[in-house]
Design a protein around this nucleic acid. Structure first.
Length: 561
RNA sequence: GCUUUCGUAGUUCAAUGGAUAGAACAUCGGUUUGCGGUACCGACGAUCCAGGUUCGAUUCCUGGCGAGAGCACCA
């Protein structure tokens, strides 16, 4: 808000006059609205330096500031806080300007931000861990888009590995021709999934097969033409189609894939070029001596000459930076990889400082399930589709129209995504599809419900010939709802700065609660009320704000529930 | 063992170093024949322990205790 700049300037001057050389003035929202709209702690902060009682300093500042335009009241409170109460016009002005763009800013205008997330392991199913990753990643993408930056969405599929060699081996045993007899992507995928399982089993069984699989893996690495490579390509294509389908269902799309095979080749070259400076040889492998730098040592090229994940990540960095020249490159992974990335980024920084400086690594935790046991086709981690199905069953029970699969999906996804995003990223999530924890109270469906309620009221108003208008005709105290409504842009900015979506989630809950509470003791569609049109405007603004906030979380709102 | 993340009501989560630590779920009690009760109002209930820094600590530092994760050719 502009007024804060004015206040900062004035208070800095006053403090300088009092004898503080370089005063830092900051504002915060008091925990309670009754304490004012903003507060500053400078009086307490500089009380000791000046050898004065904080309240005394506060009074001095207050006496010089009470005439500033836009400030209705200033007072010293508690141990020495200076509380500012803004004039109603400031709030009304903000509210009157709320439209579908509300919350967007231009803090990163002109910048390019690359976000890499949802990187799949081809030939392996899309499981709940990918949902976690996708949820956090997509939200960060949207926060970035709200900052005015050019955002490039990248996924980095793992398309070469021993595991894939195993699957291809089994595919060849069964006959790759079988694939074309299957019709849907799902059937094909199930078939490939079975290949993966069988191949893994076979690998354990005989040394002969191990040899064959390693040979196939080598051919895939080297892109050696032949039956193996073309069977692999077929499988890769099906898996990518599957991946795009799963992520689309969750609300994501991508600009480009960067494949691990591509990054691996590039990474190997770069690592080799830097042997002796950044990397060193040890036991036939090429390593980065992390221990010398307080981290841990990792292998970048193994003794067989293949790039490990580490080298591939170096190659990936090179591709990202040379191709897109981003100001910021964000990547999202499981938090198990945080110390791994520290090592990789340390090494990367020694090769090219900007690779480290411009990269931001955000992590997510794991999801565990309470109550209902999640079934899993492959044992272990449940698949995304299985989780959605289980949650969908719960949603169905609460819905009148049990055949609206799109709606069921939207609500299920809202329940899951919100559970992930309301907590700080990096934490493990305990998701419980059975209790109301995921549907009532602090939940995605609660927010969807609130929007639907708002839209329903507006619709009904139309029928009564009442339209939303931003002018308030009758003077009333500025309500808590109105005040919170005005905070959305600053919440978005804080989330963008930290790349932490949960601030948006927390805020939306407060706003929805304020609205529902206001709804509880205000009859909105009351023709007798002079402010009826304004109240409708407020209702519409709440719907818009929550709708935009949900968008930032990658969640769809619904017209009706 | 070393490194790292974390420890807040019975449970799941909040709290740029600030005022009386906020919500939700669960439990208990309510909601004026009113625009969507998946809602609203109320009650009960918490900072792991010990020091330190600070005007002020859930937050920062040190040391314990406890949980998860990572530590050489897997991805």
């Amino acid at each position: 808000m502009k007024i804060l700049e004015t206040l900062t300037k004035i208070i800095s001057e006053i403090l300088k006059d009092l004898g503080v050389p370089n005063p830092e003035v900051s504002f915060e929202h008091p925990g309670e609205l009754s304490h004012g709209d903003f507060a500053t702690n400078v009086a307490m902060r500089y009380g000791k330096i000046l050898g004065k009682n904080p309240r005394e300093i506060g009074e001095q500042i207050v006496s010089q500031i009470s005439s500033v335009q836009g400030i209705e009241k200033v007072e010293v409170a508690g141990p020495g806080f200076i509380n500012f109460f803004l004039s109603p016009e400031i709030f009304y002005e903000t509210i009157s300007e709320i439209d579908s763009e509300y919350g967007k800013n231009e803090s990163r205008k002109g910048d390019t931000i690359v976000v890499e997330h949802s990187s799949p392991n081809l030939f392996k199913p899309f499981h709940i861990g990918h949902v976690m990753n996708n949820t956090v990643g997509e939200s960060i993408v949207r926060l970035a888009e709200y900052s005015g930056a050019k955002v490039l969405k990248i996924s980095y599929p793992s398309d070469v590995s021993l595991g894939i060699g195993k699957a291809v081996w089994s595919l060849l045993q069964k006959g790759e021709g079988n694939l074309s007899t299957l019709e849907t992507v799902e059937e094909k995928l199930n078939f490939l999934g079975q290949c993966y399982v069988d191949g893994t089993k076979a690998f354990e069984e005989s040394e002969e097969i191990q040899k064959e699989i390693k040979e196939i893996t080598r051919k895939i690495y080297e892109k050696e033409e032949g039956r193996e490579f073309s069977a692999y390509l077929k499988g890769k294509e099906i898996n990518l189609e599957y991946f795009l389908g799963e992520t689309k269902r969750l609300g994501s799309s991508f600009h480009e894939f960067i494949f691990e095979s591509e990054a691996g080749a590039r990474g190997r070259e770069i690592v080799k070029e830097n042997i002796g400076t950044v990397f060193q040889e040890s036991d036939g492998a090429v390593i980065f001596d992390g221990e010398a730098r307080g981290l841990h040592t990792r292998v970048f090229i193994n003794s067989e000459g293949y790039p490990t994940y580490e080298a591939k990540d170096i190659g990936l960095l090179d591709i990202k930076f040379s191709r897109y020249n981003p100001n910021t490159s964000i990547l999202i992974t499981d938090n198990e990889q945080s110390s791994y990335y520290k090592v990789v980024l340390e090494a990367a920084g020694e090769i090219k400082p900007e690779w480290k400086e411009k990269t931001i690594h955000r992590t997510h935790g794991r999801m565990t399930f309470k109550g209902k046991k999640m079934s899993s086709r492959l044992g272990g981690v449940p698949l995304a589709s299985e989780v959605l199905e289980t949650v969908g069953e719960e949603v169905k029970e609460r819905l009148e129209d049990k055949n609206d699969t799109q709606k069921i999906d939207a609500i299920s996804i809202a329940a899951i995504k919100f559970s992930i995003l309301k907590a700080m990223a990096g934490k493990n999530i305990d998701f419980d599809p059975e209790t109301s924890l995921s549907f009532e109270g602090d939940s995605g469906p609660y927010l969807q419900y609130t929007v639907a309620r708002c839209l329903s009221i507006i619709e009904k108003g139309k029928g009564m010939n009442l339209a939303p208008r931003p002018q308030k005709l009758q003077d009333e105290k500025v309500s808590d709802l109105e005040k919170y409504l005005c905070r959305f842009p600053e919440v978005v900015e804080a989330s963008q700065k930290l790349w932490e979506p949960h601030h948006v989630a927390t805020y939306l809950l407060i706003l929805a609660r304020e609205f529902n509470s206001w709804y509880g003791n205000t009859k909105i569609l009351d023709e007798e009320n002079l402010n009826v049109s304004y109240n409708l405007w407020l209702t519409q603004s709440v719907a818009t704000t929550i709708g935009n906030g949900l968008h930032l979380l990658g969640i769809k709102y619904l017209e009706r529930m």
